[in-house]
Amino acid sequence: MALLQVKMVNKSFSGLTALNNVNLDVEEGSVHAIIGPNGAGKSTLLNCFVGRLTPDTGTVLFNGKSLIGLPPHRINQEGVVRVFQTPEIFADLSLYENVMIPTLARRDGHFALNAWSRADAQIKVREKVEHILDDVGLADARHVLAGTLSRGDKRRLELAMCLVQDPKLLLLDEPTAGMSRADTERTIELLKRIGERRITKIIIEHDMQVVFSLATRISVLAQGTVIAEGDPAAIKGDARVQEAYLGGAQF
């Protein structure tokens, strides 16, 4: 059974169809890229997975459990964790606190009245936070306020905030958008290292270099419909994909 099963999902906004009978199976351990031209419905689809949007019809099953109608914090506690397109971080807290908060959320669940112990004295949490910050190369900046980071570093921080929760399914919405070539390379390298942990990932991406260097499976979305699905080599050679993307030109 696939880890994430999406069946016949439809979503329209005031008459405009954004998703049209989308079917998608994401296998455990895979890196599944969703590509497609602007306005194809990629972000809408992702929003349906994390509780930001509710599909009009259709089912989204994670580990056999429906995610539809669950609020975002419940979906997160199920193990579906999302990295946003524009980094969502706690701008006026330190990097350490930024990573500590999701760590505590994973340990304590969606609510815990833990008002008497010291946050900085939780040894296991501390070790975990330090380890992840080290992993993404931000350990030296742990006391810096997150809002002062560069865009690329904010991305890496957000990635750390998501990784520290040991996600079962990690959703990455254009992880390299707006990044310099060098930052993109570093991010690819980082995501590959995460790949070693065998976290199932869904990646939305425009940058084909990123897609083909990471993905084990690719779905192509155009006008709200999955027009092709397969391994990277098959997608590269698919005529419909090239039609939808570049009007017939080669990648």
Binding site: P71, N76, R82, F84, A91, Q165
Partner: peptide, 14 residues
């Protein structure tokens, strides 16, 4: 105070 939306998506019922 800093980012309620982020906290929701980090699994916290605010």
């Amino acid at each position: 105070k800093s980012n309620q939306n982020r906290l929701n998506y980090a699994g916290v019922h605010t």
